[in-house]
Design a protein around this nucleic acid. Structure first.
Lengths: 122, 122
DNA sequence: CGCGTTGTCAACCCTTTGGTTTATTACGCA
DNA sequence: TGCGTAATAAACCAAAGGGTTGACAACGCG
């Protein structure tokens, strides 16, 4: 990752760590404090704090303020972005969509490699 | 990423780069050689070769041998794994799923945690 | 006030990553 | 055979990642 300008890259990078994914799984059950989140892991609290910063920068969580606690909350919108990105490949991996895709190909054939050959779309 | 034992982490890490995602998008249109894949990007061929190695290690592509060409092909299964991981959060971001979920729960209710604990059986 | 709790900041370490340049392998073809 | 093309390998570099320890800020409570 060269720079932080690309939000989707930040989200994927944040998800590329089992500890952070476990934190998200915990937050799917509801808000939690940093200590609560850190409890299951064999690393320091500071390490978890860093993980939370990564998740926050990716927009996957937000943190509130309640006395000395910083309750963390799951934020859905980056996951929605990932889901939308995935849609573009759904025909490759979702069998239910494969049949639909075959049907669509027959009705409206796609451009061939030669016809396209420019403008890569992410 | 401390180690490579976690395949899902490898996949997310591989997706956390716009160049690699663009390569996948290109491969969604069909096989391509390394030079074809490298053409749109302002980096060296060697850099692209490294990106391809990352994608291959994540299982997102496979490479064949045809004379001196190494045609790359998109592989769907890691995307399926990502899709399955996403499912667990779908209720947070997919509005359509929320309605469907409500519907399915009503038609064919799943056992709740309490019902299991109470040994409730139909 | 002083103390324990919650959490972040800062400095440091080592590994990984993404890029470069140079060199090398493997193949088709004249 | 030798040349040009396709692609990888190797060595190197700067920056980012994930971890640690130690210090410090903010708050509730006795």
């Amino acid at each position: 990752m060269t720079e932080a300008t690309d939000q989707l890259s930040n989200v994927f990078a944040a998800l590329a760590d089992p500890t952070r994914r476990a934190i998200l799984a915990r937050l799917a059950d509801g808000e939690a404090s940093v200590n609560e989140l850190a409890e299951p892991f064999p690393v320091s609290l500071q390490a978890i704090s860093k993980h939370l910063k990564v998740l926050e920068r990716a927009g996957l969580i937000t943190r509130g303020k309640e006395a000395q606690w910083r309750p963390c909350r799951l934020e859905p919108s980056p996951l929605r972005e990932v889901g939308e990105w995935m849609e573009q490949y759904r025909r490759f991996w979702d069998e239910r969509y494969e049949r639909l895709d075959t049907y669509l190909r027959r009705m409206k054939p796609r451009e061939t490699k030669e016809e396209k050959e420019n403008g890569h779309k992410e």
